[in-house]
């Protein structure tokens, strides 16, 4: 599995590699469901409890990076997992402009959290819509 590159077009991970796709209403503050879903997917992929906790926080931050203060529209998450590896993509669907004002602290903290908890993360564009992805692999035993 590999992240969808920045500037990509077409169906990308949302139609091909994704095994789970979740659409959430932004207005209803449903990130708890994103965290629950990644917990279930990561469990099936063989991640341990500590790694699953890391993923819960990382996916939450991934969503926040896409939302950037927006309070309307939809957040779409796609997840693909195989033993020991999970990819998550998040994109925003809606018309509201990002409202990053006042999110300076949170944005910086979010980057630090993702840097610490996952193997790869970054932005991508899916059908012209802003998104972000992360990849987390299980730590090798003894590594």
């Amino acid at each position: 599995m590999s992240p969808e590159p920045t500037g990509s077009t077409g169906s990308g991970p949302f139609a091909s590699a994704a095994q789970v796709e979740l659409t959430l209403s932004v207005a209803d503050d449903l990130l708890v469901l994103a965290r629950l879903t990644v917990s279930a997917v990561a469990t099936r992929a063989g991640f341990d409890i500590e790694e699953i906790e890391d993923l819960r926080l990382a996916v939450d931050e991934l969503c926040l990076q896409v939302l950037l203060g927006r309070r309307t529209g939809r957040l779409v998450l796609a997840m693909a997992a195989e033993p020991g590896c999970i990819d998550v993509w998040s994109r925003y669907e809606g018309t509201e402009e990002a409202r990053p004002d006042g999110l300076d602290d949170e944005g910086d903290l979010s980057e630090r959290i993702l840097d610490a908890l996952v193997d790869e993360h970054g932005p991508f564009v899916h059908d012209g819509r802003p998104g972000a992805f992360l990849t987390k692999r299980r730590a090798l035993a003894g590594g």
Binding site: R35, R56, L57, E61, L64, L103, D105, E106, L109
Partner: peptide
């Protein structure tokens, strides 16, 4: 039991 960057902010 959980805190993200929003809470830290």
């Amino acid at each position: 039991t959980f805190i993200d960057s929003t809470g830290l902010g």
